[in-house]
């Protein structure tokens, strides 16, 4: 396009094209501004509820927070006011911890199969797809599954049943995030190890896994944080207790999310206060895991460079 083809510019040097903002047609300018405004509004729409939820939880939760609240047994009547949440905190840590002990190693080995052995074989592709599908299975369904195949079989509610349900929810998440991390390990490292006469299993355990370990840990911690907040399966398979039960294999148990759920549906001030306190405790636990995961991930990213 030659300059002669451009319409004459107004109020400028002769023949010079108008490069001012005003040269853009009114309609195009307005549309662009409206669109960009809507996009900013969308972000605002996400920030507002997040801010309100966090502020409320901090505000209401801090009001009941005390050492006693973290330690004391749960009152066995919703009507009663006062602390605490001790048994639920212990339950959350134990149940989630046991779930992690089961799901993380299994998930990492599953990821090793997908990335180191299965690759693009039909079976590996099926497992990959099904792991993604399993991530979408509602937690309540996982709770029903463990209720039928564990609680009904052993004949009682236990904390371990909760761990099993959480482990099932964590497994596909750990598999997929670990596989992503294994995929980032450069092939040259595998070849170098094999060229030294290392067997494949040794190469995987001593070279590939250590190279990916921080990324895997980071992903696994995110899965743990998610699992710690899961409520529905806990409500269905662990039963309920009001005093601390440290034995996952015997007797009912409870956890923070289940306590929040039960207390939130009560009309009594004491129960609602405890729900807010439990929510604050749970958020602190979840955010701690998330932050640790972030820190590990960032250090990994630095080391890669």
């Amino acid at each position: 396009m030659t300059t002669t083809a451009t319409p004459p510019a107004t109020g400028r040097g002769q023949g010079a094209p108008d490069l001012s903002r005003g040269a853009l047609s009114m309609r195009r300018r307005v549309v662009n501004h409206v669109a960009s405004g809507s996009i900013h509004l969308a972000l605002l729409l996400a920030v507002i509820p997040l801010g309100l939820v966090i502020w409320t939880v901090l505000n209401r939760g801090a009001g009941v927070m005390s050492l006693d609240f973290l330690n004391a047994d749960i009152p066995n009547s919703y009507r009663r006011e006062g602390p605490g949440m001790g048994p639920a905190i212990v339950g959350t840590l134990l149940i989630t911890g046991m779930a992690s002990l089961m799901a993380i190693p299994l998930g990492v080995f599953g990821a090793i199969y997908l990335n180191e052995y299965g690759k693009q074989k039909p079976l590996a592709r099926t497992i990959r797809l099904m792991a993604d599908v399993m991530t979408g299975v509602p937690s309540i369904v996982m709770g029903l599954f463990i209720y039928i195949s564990w609680v009904l079989v052993v004949g009682r509610f236990t904390g371990f049943a909760g761990s099993l349900a959480l482990a099932c929810l964590m497994l596909p998440v750990v598999i997929r995030s670990s596989e992503e991390m294994l995929r980032l390990v450069p092939d040259e490292l595998r070849q170098a190890s094999l060229a030294l006469g290392a067997r494949k299993w040794r190469t995987i355990l001593t070279v590939v896994l250590p190279a990916a370990i921080s990324g895997i840990t980071s992903g696994a911690l995110l899965a743990v944080a998610r699992a710690a907040g899961e409520t529905a399966p806990i409500v269905i398979v662990t039963g309920i207790v009001f005093s601390t039960n440290t034995n996952l294999f015997d007797g009912s148990n409870t956890a923070l999310p289940a306590q929040i759920f039960r207390n939130a549906s009560q009309p009594f001030v004491g129960a609602q206060d405890r729900a807010w306190g439990a929510a604050l405790t749970l958020i602190v636990i979840v955010v701690l895991f998330t932050i640790v995961s972030r820190v590990i991930a960032n250090r990994f990213a630095l080391k890669e460079r």
């Binding site: 299994l106 199969y113 099904m130 399993m134 599954f145 195949s149």
Partner: peptide, 24 residues
Amino acid sequence: AFSWWTLGTGLLVLGILALILITT
């Protein structure tokens, strides 16, 4: 042995999904 073990853990996903369907 190692490759079979990892395959087993991978198959766990399919196994659990199948079990969910059957038991429920």
